[in-house]
């Protein structure tokens, strides 16, 4: 306990020194990383961060659905209990695996599709009540307190990233509330991100030893994702729309 208390004050100290003596490299990188990631619970998310994800489709294994299962487990997404009912059309899919073949070259890629966390999200533009929203740190979510279930955002999303809760949600996770009659989509595991963690899908991809997904702060030039993007680049899906997505892909 006391160790942790010290840790906190040390963290605060580090924060202050880091800002005062910016550039002095006595601060160990580990701490810098933690300061950047773990937002204090009473502080709002700010535009100093922009959370994003980079997916290397060459590392993404065809047939592997670790990210999908992890997402479902994390967010309490279950297939329907109703018999005689085509689950695939009406159950929620926050993340899905897609396998593609280039029609000309025959090159086959496998990749996960999910909310692309656009800088200019069409779903946010069209939402009549403002339930569809983007946080200051770039995470796009649905505020299901004021979602009326009109589904206009689903019409507007170019990535089919959103699902409608077609039936009652039994036993939602306490950190991922979900309910019938509203629209939902990938939250980038915001409950984890706010506490300095990584989204469940990325964790699962790493645990499966594919390492195809990197999560991090696009605004931090030293983050792994920024470094990798700078070195090898990453494409946006439907870049023509100019949405500036937070999720980027390599190898497509």
């Amino acid at each position: 306990m006391s160790k942790e208390t010290i840790n906190i004050s040390r963290r605060g100290f580090v924060e202050k020194t880091a800002t005062t003596f910016a550039g002095i490299s006595i601060v160990p990188g580990v701490f810098l990383h933690q300061v950047a990631n773990a937002k204090p619970a009473d502080q709002p998310a700010t535009a100093d961060n922009r959370w994003g994800m980079l997916i290397d489709t060459n590392k993404c294994a065809s047939g592997c659905t670790a990210c999908v299962s992890a997402c479902n487990e994390e967010n309490g997404i279950k297939t329907s209990d109703h018999p005689n009912h085509d689950n695939q059309t009406t159950t929620q899919q926050w993340i899905r695996k897609v396998k593609l073949r280039d029609k000309q070259t025959g090159h086959v890629v496998s990749l996960p599709m999910m909310c692309q966390h656009c800088e200019h999200p069409p779903c946010v533009d069209v939402c009549p009540t403002g339930a569809s929203m983007k946080r200051a740190d770039g995470i796009v979510m649905v505020d299901r307190h004021i979602c009326i279930g009109c589904r206009y955002c689903m019409m507007a999303c170019p990535y089919k990233a959103r699902s409608f809760a077609h039936e009652t949600v039994e036993d939602p996770k306490e950190y991922a509330p979900r309910g019938k009659g509203t629209v939902e989509s990938c939250t980038l595991c915001v409950h984890r991100v706010d506490e300095g963690g990584t989204p469940a899908c990325v964790e699962a991809c790493n645990e499966a030893e594919h390492g195809a997904m990197i999560f991090g702060d696009l605004k931090d030039p030293n983050s792994a994702i920024s470094q990798e993007l700078k070195k090898h680049g990453g494409k946006q899906i439907r870049a023509d729309l100019g949405l500036n997505t937070g999720v980027r892909y390599q190898g497509i």
Partner: peptide, 8 residues
């Protein structure tokens, strides 16, 4: 929901 403030 909107700001990510998670005080208990």
């Amino acid at each position: 929901m909107r700001e990510g403030i998670r005080t208990k």
